[in-house]
Amino acid sequence: MMAQLVFYVFAAVLLLSASMVISARNPVHAVLFLILGFFNAAGLFLVAGAEFLAMLLVIVYVGAVAVLFLFVVMMLDIDFSRLREGFQRYAPLGLCIGGVLLAELVMAFSNWRMAPAGVVAPLAVQPGLTNTAALGTVIYTHYVLLFQACGLVLLVAMIGAIVLTLRETATGRRQNIGRQHARTREETLELVNLPLGENVFEQGGFLRPKGSYYEIAVPGSYGAGEPEKTETEEKGA
């Protein structure tokens, strides 16, 4: 009785928040409703006794994926009036895609039958295992190749994301920590002797860096390799 009640509460909130995801006007609210949806899905897993999956759903989707969603959506500056402009133009395409999906769903559901209780073939694992251990025994033995294939797909996606975002830009100063640690005082500073009464600024100060930033800059970073500018600065110093 209690379990059923909990199930219906979770399921109702899940459906409600899922519908709010697509109907909320503010995208940040939509993402927050998505997170609520994930939570209730985790709750449903708990009711079904799959506590490992429930925790994984919360850690992976709520704790990492949705955070990045929210991160991006918060930084978007969305103008709602402009968002509606293209509605008429894109409506036919949207309807086409929606229609295809609907047809597929209808086809899938018309052939789908709920298995009567007890017919669902349980996986052959030793009794008395916690469901984490049971999942591990199945994944790392019977389905190890599929599991590794999943890993490879994720690896490819990761490499793709890095390739897309990695750009060798000329701006921004990069820090080479090894190089910073390796330098000594003799390399970086020189003591300038100054006759009495001379202007400090014309002589370049007492203890000044040897050479300019442009000479010691990491190649490719901002300001590296600008000889003319260096020349003038040296003269001025």
Partner: peptide
């Protein structure tokens, strides 16, 4: 005393970020 205690802790600590993110926004 649940079976997946350490995962529960990890989940709760990873959710903590929402408080700050939502507060900031």
């Amino acid at each position: 005393n649940i079976n997946v205690g350490i995962l529960y802790l990890l989940a709760m600590s990873s959710l903590g970020v929402y408080g700050m993110l939502i507060a900031g926004w």
